[in-house]
Simulated assay, not measured.
Amino acid sequence: MRTDSIAPTSVGLSCYTENLAGYLCARAPGSTDLLARSVRLAVQPATGSFSHHDRALNNLPGNSRLGYRGAPDSEAALAGVAAELARHGRVLVVADSGALPWLSGAADDHAPHLLLVDGRTPEGDWHLVDGFTALFSSGGSQDPFAGTLTEAEFSALIAFPRGLSQVHRMRNTLAFGFPVAPPAHETYQWLVEEEGATQERLPGAPWLTGAAALEETACLLAADLEGDGSRGVLEDLWAAAQHHLFRDAHLLAGAGDALTRAEREAVEATTAKWRELPRMLRFAANSARRGRPRPSLITGTFTALAELEAAASPVHAAHGYGAPVARPTAAGSHVRQGG
């Protein structure tokens, strides 16, 4: 591995959208604005699945979209990635987050992570860009990276020899907000530009949004922490926090003097609560590991978050960031939506 002298600048998004943003910036003008305005949390109680965007971020100009491709072996995968790189000058690949050579310490998990490949050297090495940054509960961390990997290093990085868990498979499927069909072979996966558009409809049983989604999320998180954590709710909530912080920062920077003092304070209050969320998640997870689950902490946090989101939602909606949401009810009633 060889590291560039200048690292990429992180925009503060999740392990899927951080490098998707880098891809889209070159492919679709205005994509940063699109990403910020797309932020929405939807939850399907029946499966515990999450969707983080209210539009299909894989849809591209000219009736094209990003779709998954897969291969059972490294030779076919590298040939497929090279072909897409030759066509478009960049390609997103699905990498193993726990195998990144530029990690400091250990990652929390081996999970799918999008990386941007944007070139090759005359020697055949692969140039990668990863703007993602994170602190892990294990004590490890990840900083932005740009540099080259040998073919052997790159092949090892994108290999999932035992395939994906059901949670990770669903997360890949919904990474862009709405379902994108996974490939037949998932040992190696990458994305290509293809014809057509992804339908913007969430599948299956009813989905919750707004305050109802946050109420349901609190229940899912408490149950996951009291169990074995296999549903991966923590990871989705960390991603939701990053997305909502990105949304609010974009709104506050763009709206400027158009916001009244009260409107700005309402948005800043949601920002503060989303910024606190990862710290609460770490505390709740560590407490659960010690046999001292904190369901009241989780419930209280998400109740307060739902109230702040409802209070700020007219401001968000007035500037094109989603629709107004109802305040949470005393009975905690859920409004179910299909997408």
Rank of each mutant, 00 (worst) to 15 (best):
R2C: 05
S5I: 09
I6E: 14
A7L: 08
P8N: 15
G12D: 00
L13A: 01
Y16D: 05
T17S: 15
E18Y: 06
L20W: 01
G22E: 02
G22V: 03
C25F: 07
A26P: 01
A28S: 12
P29M: 14
G30V: 14
T32V: 09
D33H: 07
D33I: 12
S38H: 08
S38W: 02
P45H: 03
P45W: 03
T47W: 10
T47Q: 11
G48C: 12
S51H: 02
S51W: 07
H52R: 13
H52F: 14
A56P: 00
L57N: 02
Y68K: 06
R69I: 05
D73N: 15
S74Q: 10
S74T: 06
A76L: 12
A79T: 11
V81C: 08
A82M: 10
A83V: 07
A86F: 10
R87E: 10
V91G: 02
V93A: 05
V93L: 08
V94H: 02
D96F: 07
G98H: 08
G105I: 10
A107K: 01
A107Q: 04
D109Q: 08
H110Q: 09
H113D: 01
L114F: 15
D118G: 02
T121A: 10
T121Y: 13
E123S: 05
G124C: 07
L128C: 05
G131T: 03
S137N: 08
G139E: 13
G139F: 14
G140P: 03
S141G: 11
D143Y: 11
F145W: 07
A152C: 05
E153T: 01
E153W: 04
F154M: 06
P161M: 15
R162H: 11
G163V: 12
V167Y: 09
V167E: 07
M170R: 15
M170Y: 10
G177T: 05
P179Y: 11
P183H: 12
H185Q: 14
T187A: 13
W190S: 04
V192G: 12
E194V: 15
G196I: 09
T198D: 08
Q199I: 10
E200A: 14
L202F: 01
G204I: 06
G210I: 04
L214N: 00
A218N: 02
C219V: 12
D224Y: 11
L225G: 12
E226R: 15
G227F: 09
S230A: 13
A240N: 07
A240C: 11
A241P: 07
A241N: 11
Q242T: 06
L245H: 15
D248Y: 13
L251P: 06
A255Q: 09
G256K: 09
D257I: 12
R261Q: 10
E263L: 13
A269L: 14
T270N: 04
W274S: 03
W274G: 04
L277T: 00
R279G: 09
M280V: 12
A284W: 01
R290I: 05
R292S: 07
P293V: 03
R294T: 12
G300W: 08
F302S: 03
A306V: 00
L308H: 03
L308D: 09
L308E: 02
E309C: 02
A311T: 09
A311M: 05
A311W: 05
P314W: 04
P314V: 06
H319P: 05
H319L: 13
H319R: 11
P324Q: 11
V325N: 04
A326W: 01
P328I: 04
A330K: 11
S333I: 02
S333Q: 05
V335L: 15
G338V: 07
G339A: 14
